[in-house]
């Protein structure tokens, strides 16, 4: 019982990050039409830029202590958005009309470029990264009948959950109520239809790439204290982010967030059983295969109308 509660407490914030990662991946998939294999790697470079900025602020003595992190975060986020827009403008726009396969190959190439850049310009070492909310963990202990309960909740996870919640809600509002959100959804449903109502789909694609990689940078900054900063720090998050998007069905963006939460919790719950230790990823991917076979639209996909 206690182990389950503990697994869920750690799994939810972790899953929220997979979900945000998956949201960006699904957004690029639906709108720009490719699976971005470099998603986590460009975010990793943005995290390195954030870290370097923190150190620079520190050395220059401009900002003191923890404030340096918050001063550096905007720099990191902007770099994420800039990477996204540049990838779209310089690379994707040229091959968009050629074939989806060429876009996919470019994202695989970018993965290597980002990883190589991190190794060359920075280093393959593991660097520590400051937490948003430093301090000792919260410990919840039951009393009376619940005496056996003792759940540890990492303080930084509070920040992770709040940020993930605020971002999810604001993204939902943007997608539903703003003009640009409407344009993104329309472009994802039918590119020619979107152009017929006057939407500049090239501009939508740039915005989607920028927004998705900015989001990935947020995830990178939030996981960095746990994974530490190194060239493959987001490999696992990206893989499970793609999984979350598959699980949620690429047809609904917020399905990815739910999918991510499920994966995060599942990963920790599997962890409870010593016999299954080390098989978390294998079990999760086995479930993905089941989903793809029995419900290929994703488990949260809305009922589709007949195709006419």
């Amino acid at each position: 019982m206690n182990a389950f509660l503990q697994a869920i407490t750690i799994g939810i914030p972790q899953g929220a990050l997979y979900g945000l990662m998956g949201f960006g991946i699904a957004m690029i998939f639906r709108s720009a039409g490719t699976l971005n294999f470099s998603h986590g790697y460009s975010a990793m470079v943005s995290v390195l830029i954030t870290l370097t900025t923190i150190e620079w602020f520190f050395d220059a003595g401009i900002v003191e202590g923890h404030a340096a992190l918050f001063a550096a975060i905007p720099v990191g986020l902007i770099s994420g958005a800039v990477f996204g827009v540049l990838i779209d403008l310089l690379l994707m726009r040229r091959v968009k009309h050629v074939s989806p396969a060429s876009m996919l190959m470019i994202t695989l190439g970018l993965l290597l470029v980002f990883e190589g850049t991190a190794n060359l310009v920075w280093s393959p070492d593991y660097e520590s990264f400051p937490r948003i909310l430093p301090g000792p963990p919260f410990i919840f202990e039951g009393t009376g009948a619940l005496e056996e309960i003792r759940v540890v909740f990492r303080r930084n996870d509070l920040a992770v959950m709040l940020i993930a919640l605020v971002i999810s809600l604001s993204l939902a509002a943007v997608m539903k109520y703003t003009k640009i959100g409407l344009a993104i959804r329309a472009r994802g449903q039918d590119p020619v239809g979107a152009q017929a109502v006057g939407i500049n789909t090239n501009r939508v694609d740039s915005i989607v790439w920028g927004l998705a990689l900015l989001l990935a940078t947020v995830v990178g900054i939030l996981v960095a204290p746990i994974t530490r900063v190194h060239p493959t720090m987001l490999m696992n998050t990206q893989l499970l982010g793609i999984t979350a998007a598959v699980l949620g069905g690429f047809s609904s963006l917020f399905g990815a967030v739910w999918g991510g939460l499920m994966i995060g919790v599942l990963e920790r719950v599997i962890d409870i059983f010593p016999a299954l230790d080390g098989y978390e990823t294998a079990i999760i991917f086995f479930l993905i295969i089941l989903v793809l076979v029995f419900k290929p639209q994703g488990i949260f996909a809305p009922k589709q109308g007949r195709k006419a």
Partner: peptide, 22 residues
Amino acid sequence: SPTEPTSKGMVLCPENRRIFPG
């Protein structure tokens, strides 16, 4: 981009309907 002609009053109804099915 199609934004300019559309905003001036040239509106396209494309082949194969191209409505937003969802």
